[in-house]
Simulated scan of single mutants.
Amino acid sequence: MTEVRNMPHLWRGKVKFASWPSAWTVLGRWLPPLVCLYALGCATAALAVPATPAVTGPQLVRSMSFPNRPMRLIVPFPAGGVADAVARLLAERLSARLGVQMEVDNRPGAAGTTAGDVVAKASSDGHTLLFHQANMLIQPGLEPVPYDVVRDFTPVARVATTPLFLVIDARLPMRTPEQWMTAVKSNPGSYSYGYGQPGSPSHLYAEYAVRGIRNGVPLVTAKGEAAVVQEMLAGRISACFCSFAAVQSQVRSGGLRLIGVTGMARSPLAPLVPTLQESGLEGYAASAWFGVMAPAKTPRAIVSRLAVELDTVMAEREVRSRLQAAGLTTLRDSPEAFATAIRSESFQWQVILRDVSHVQEP
């Protein structure tokens, strides 16, 4: 076979073409194997290349037929009130966007842990969601809870923040947080803080504000923010960390005064009110928020789809107006930003709990 014997000569550059057979002989011998190799290559390429482009994110979710049945939004608040109203507004909008009915399932009790436990144990298929607030980051530092906030949930998005304002009785002369703190420290028995829910950000901030003050400052528990406001108007409570919704009408009428706000930035609800951090008071950066979470191990594509739909809902002008009227600030969030906030704010609340517990030790 001359063609084979000439292969070594080719590598040395000394090929003698005179000994090659005719073209038809070559074609007769090599064409059938070449045809087979070509066919095999085509078949391999067909298997290696997908018939359609790769699908990710919301498109992948649609190809998975999500959602494919009614959904539940578990809410740790009783029917009525601001939080329940926000949850029902979200459920209504998401039902329209997702094409399935989303039911609001109120599960109040045990400081929100009852609702959290239901979702932590639910199937990770995206059909059962939790609508909760920042209190869920505080509760594990107060008592045992049946779940781990980081391990047992997948953050989807925060939808609104509730800035807490340092509010005082307008009959008092103080106008700034510095003036208020100076007065409290110099005569602690003459002033008091009120809060409406034990274990809430309002409660912890009140405890944190009076830490280290000798003889203590009275802390008064009332049955909700509305009751705190009434006690302040009656002169039995001097100050509170309250939501704008609870105090806005009394601030406008001149009965109460806003002198500071928690969080990292001023609130658009009252942009002239400085943050406590601006006033030189550290430790008030964690915010109160409402957010949506799914069970752990919920597929990333489903979480992304839900986050996109929530972002679209929160961008609606009517939704923003209704939340602002309720004293809330809408928030367009992502799963990643929500997860970061949970980690950082959990740490901040635990620091506050540690400092408060240390002060209260005999």
Score class of each variant (00 low, 15 high):
357 S>R: 08
320 R>Q: 15
324 Q>H: 14
291 G>H: 08
343 R>H: 02
356 V>Y: 00
325 A>K: 12
345 E>P: 03
326 A>K: 13
281 L>M: 14
328 L>F: 12
306 L>E: 10
342 I>W: 01
343 R>E: 02
289 W>G: 10
307 A>K: 01
334 S>D: 05
303 V>H: 01
271 P>S: 10
357 S>H: 05
281 L>A: 08
322 R>V: 13
290 F>V: 10
253 S>F: 04
269 L>I: 09
292 V>H: 03
262 T>D: 05
253 S>A: 13
262 T>A: 13
290 F>R: 01
295 P>W: 12
281 L>C: 06
285 A>H: 05
288 A>P: 04
304 S>K: 00
259 I>H: 02
353 L>G: 00
330 T>N: 10
294 A>C: 06
339 A>V: 07
257 R>S: 06
318 E>Q: 14
326 A>P: 02
254 G>Q: 01
318 E>Y: 08
328 L>V: 13
313 V>I: 13
354 R>E: 11
298 T>A: 10
347 F>H: 13
305 R>E: 15
275 T>F: 00
297 K>M: 14
305 R>V: 14
263 G>F: 13
294 A>H: 04
346 S>P: 02
337 A>L: 04
328 L>S: 08
279 S>C: 13
271 P>L: 10
256 L>T: 08
265 A>R: 14
350 Q>H: 12
304 S>I: 03
319 V>I: 13
254 G>F: 02
317 R>A: 14
293 M>Q: 08
284 Y>H: 04
328 L>T: 09
310 L>D: 07
288 A>G: 10
341 A>M: 06
287 S>T: 15
352 I>K: 00
307 A>W: 03
308 V>I: 08
332 R>N: 11
275 T>V: 07
258 L>R: 01
336 E>S: 13
292 V>W: 03
335 P>S: 06
355 D>I: 04
277 Q>S: 14
266 R>L: 02
343 R>K: 07
271 P>M: 07
259 I>M: 02
337 A>N: 09
354 R>T: 14
334 S>L: 03
267 S>W: 07
347 F>K: 12
256 L>V: 09
292 V>T: 05
306 L>Q: 12
303 V>T: 09
315 A>G: 08
340 T>S: 00
308 V>G: 05
339 A>R: 03
290 F>T: 06
345 E>A: 10
284 Y>N: 07
308 V>C: 02
255 G>K: 00
317 R>M: 11
350 Q>E: 11
337 A>M: 01
